[in-house]
Simulated assay, not measured.
Amino acid sequence: MSVSHPGQRVAVLADAQNLYHTAQTIYSRNIDYSELLAEGVSGRQLTRAIAYVIRADSPEEESFFEALVDIGFEPKIKEIKTFSDGSKKADWDVGMSLDAITLANHIDTLVLCTGDGDFSRLCSHLRHEGVRVEVMAFESSTAEELIEAADSFEDLGERHETYLL
């Protein structure tokens, strides 16, 4: 059951890497960030929308970053790190968590778009601070502890035609 009213101040934080990999793996399609933002805000007052992305030097990524801005997201871009053994790492867990905690005093609801279970502790902390936490992700790839830690969960897979391009 969703508890919302038009005056709620909402921030939407989207873990683009997490959403991308699930959408590609299950549906071979991309996320419709315009619909994701519209559904996340759902008639409430948008305070901030941030998409956390990784620069992987692919040809279409600059146009993707520009499209995010046009939609209403502020893209935060991290360079992919390549280690001496050839392995690569890039994630935004700490950055997203710090932004969420920083925004907590300025919002009523945080919409977290990720299935990463590492954010379950963040959800518990924010709820303790009085912030409503809503998670939007594909249930098939979302950690159970994240679903349980949130006030509400929207399975993007149930309405994948809405959320995918």
Results as ranks from 00 to 15, higher is better:
V111H: 11
P59Y: 10
A23F: 13
G157I: 07
L68A: 10
L46Y: 05
Q45D: 12
S97I: 01
L103H: 02
V111D: 04
E129C: 06
A49C: 08
V94S: 00
Y33F: 15
A143C: 06
H21M: 13
D155T: 05
E62V: 14
T109C: 15
L122M: 10
I54C: 11
D91P: 00
Y33V: 04
S84G: 00
Y33N: 03
S63T: 14
E161K: 09
R159N: 14
R132N: 11
H128T: 11
A11H: 11
S120P: 01
E158M: 08
Q17N: 12
R9V: 06
F73L: 06
K89C: 01
I107M: 08
A90Q: 01
L37Q: 02
D155G: 07
V12M: 07
G130I: 11
V3Y: 14
G115R: 12
S152W: 07
K78W: 07
S124D: 09
H5S: 04
D91W: 00
S87C: 04
L122N: 01
S4R: 14
G115L: 13
V111M: 04
G95S: 02
F119R: 00
S2G: 03
G86H: 09
A143E: 01
D151V: 11
V69G: 01
I80G: 02
S120H: 11
H128S: 11
T82D: 01
T82R: 13
T109S: 10
F83L: 12
F73P: 02
F73S: 06
S87W: 03
D108Y: 12
H128R: 15
G72C: 09
D85R: 09
S141A: 09
F83G: 03
A51L: 07
